[in-house]
Simulated assay, not measured.
Amino acid sequence: MTYRRAAIPALIGGLLLTALLWWAGASADALHLPGSGGTLGTDPVAELQRWLAPWAYDPPVFLDSGAQVSGYVPLDGGDDRDRYNGLYTTGLQIRYGAVFVFFVLGALLLIRRLPPVRGRATTAFLALWAWGAVAGTLAVTVSAPWFIASSGHGNYRFLPQLANVIAGGRQLPVAVGLVAAGASVLVARITAEGAEPPPRTDVPVRAARLAATAGTAVIALSVVVLSYQPVAAALQAYSPAGGLLSEPGDLLRQWLLLGAWDVPAGGPVLEWLLHRASDVLLLAVVWWALRRLPGLLTRATLPAMAAGAVCATVLGLLAGQVLRIAVVQAGPEQGLPYFSAGLGNGIPAALTCGLAAGVLAAVVLRTVLRGAPDPGPAGPAQYGDDR
């Protein structure tokens, strides 16, 4: 698919994702109405407020009510709340602009290399859904300095504050990304009508398996080694002395760890194995996706492999979290706050590890295929049809 054909669905998906996030953030005030707690329940309202807070237009408490908070530093020796409020508004504008830009750029690459036509529609939908969650994380990250500065104590422990801001705002893009991905796929199928069928590359099974195994090993390093609690604790406690950028441990943990686990300590072994099943599912999803990805792409370029690996890691992470919720944490007394508490955790680490996994998989794939004869385009009988 050409860039011109791919740009239309990417732009529509980006506009829809941004508009839905803006609408949800603008609706956060409704949760403060007196009847909301009685209608929805106290706990669901509190959880929804936590979902919407990073995207809401509500200013910080001390800017809204005039109350001083710990660490608040007045500008120019006075009570200059308007300027702090301006920083908050600027940060929110950057956040919404960034989520649109990041989604469009990623969707443009994915739709061009993974056009949602016969045999690829479901894969493209899942990839765009995952990329919507990644775009939300990146938008929160680049806008975080403005939100930290608007709190009035941006010169104190900046990196831990940055890690705390990045950890928020993950559930809402995961939810609304489904709608944006569906709209992008639908528009892309319409724009692809009349175009020549996109080619597929017949990748040898051995090469695809080796590339998938190498990429999955990178994810396993985070899941098995770095996420082991003694190692994770060492990362989180890492704190070189002095300076605004000291104490990067929390930030490193956000961008490197895909989970947390420890050896059984007196509890039932079966329950421990059930918790580990989510990690196994994550690795299985990543391996299967990387195994299929080179054959689904119109051209297995390094950027396309890297973006596809990021999406595969996010999908595996979400699948593991849903499994943990359904099998391990489910109970009749649990409600929305309990179920959604961990949804979207680890997306920054999925971006870091997924990029490394995709790059390594692409390098291994090119190395194995180097010197081999060009297999040429694969015939339609070699692939399934997911229409």
Rank of each mutant, 00 (worst) to 15 (best):
residue 1 M to R: 08
residue 7 A to C: 02
residue 8 I to V: 15
residue 11 L to V: 14
residue 16 L to W: 03
residue 31 L to Y: 06
residue 34 P to Y: 10
residue 42 T to K: 14
residue 44 P to G: 11
residue 44 P to H: 09
residue 55 W to E: 00
residue 57 Y to S: 13
residue 57 Y to N: 13
residue 58 D to G: 09
residue 60 P to S: 05
residue 61 V to I: 14
residue 63 L to S: 05
residue 64 D to E: 14
residue 71 G to D: 05
residue 71 G to E: 08
residue 80 D to K: 03
residue 81 R to C: 11
residue 83 R to L: 04
residue 86 G to W: 09
residue 86 G to Q: 09
residue 87 L to I: 08
residue 91 G to F: 01
residue 93 Q to P: 02
residue 96 Y to R: 02
residue 96 Y to T: 04
residue 97 G to H: 07
residue 100 F to M: 10
residue 108 L to K: 11
residue 112 R to F: 01
residue 117 V to A: 10
residue 120 R to I: 12
residue 129 W to A: 09
residue 132 G to H: 04
residue 133 A to W: 09
residue 139 A to W: 01
residue 141 T to N: 06
residue 144 A to N: 03
residue 153 H to Y: 13
residue 155 N to V: 06
residue 158 F to L: 14
residue 160 P to K: 11
residue 161 Q to G: 12
residue 162 L to D: 02
residue 163 A to I: 13
residue 171 Q to L: 03
residue 172 L to D: 00
residue 179 V to A: 15
residue 182 G to A: 06
residue 182 G to Q: 09
residue 182 G to L: 02
residue 184 S to I: 05
residue 185 V to N: 10
residue 185 V to K: 08
residue 186 L to G: 10
residue 189 R to P: 06
residue 191 T to E: 10
residue 198 P to K: 04
residue 198 P to Q: 07
residue 201 T to N: 05
residue 207 A to R: 05
residue 212 A to Q: 00
residue 219 I to D: 01
residue 221 L to E: 13
residue 222 S to L: 05
residue 224 V to Y: 05
residue 225 V to Q: 01
residue 227 S to N: 09
residue 228 Y to M: 12
residue 229 Q to R: 15
residue 230 P to D: 09
residue 240 P to S: 13
residue 240 P to E: 07
residue 241 A to F: 08
residue 247 E to G: 01
residue 250 D to H: 10
residue 250 D to V: 03
residue 251 L to M: 06
residue 252 L to K: 11
residue 254 Q to K: 14
residue 255 W to A: 12
residue 257 L to A: 03
residue 261 W to C: 08
residue 263 V to H: 15
residue 270 L to M: 08
residue 270 L to Y: 15
residue 278 S to I: 02
residue 282 L to N: 11
residue 284 A to D: 00
residue 285 V to G: 07
residue 289 A to Q: 09
residue 290 L to F: 02
residue 298 T to N: 13
residue 298 T to P: 06
residue 304 A to L: 13
residue 309 A to R: 03
residue 310 V to A: 07
residue 312 A to H: 04
residue 313 T to G: 02
residue 314 V to C: 01
residue 315 L to G: 06
residue 316 G to A: 07
residue 319 A to P: 00
residue 320 G to C: 05
residue 324 R to D: 11
residue 330 A to R: 06
residue 330 A to M: 05
residue 332 P to N: 09
residue 332 P to Q: 06
residue 340 S to V: 15
residue 342 G to F: 14
residue 342 G to A: 13
residue 346 G to R: 10
residue 347 I to Q: 00
residue 349 A to Q: 10
residue 349 A to G: 04
residue 349 A to Y: 11
residue 350 A to V: 01
residue 354 G to T: 02
residue 354 G to W: 12
residue 358 G to C: 11
residue 363 V to F: 10
residue 365 L to T: 07
residue 366 R to N: 15
residue 367 T to M: 11
residue 374 D to H: 02
residue 374 D to I: 04
residue 375 P to A: 15
residue 379 G to L: 14
residue 381 A to S: 15
residue 384 G to D: 07
residue 384 G to M: 06
residue 385 D to Q: 10
residue 385 D to E: 14
residue 387 R to E: 08
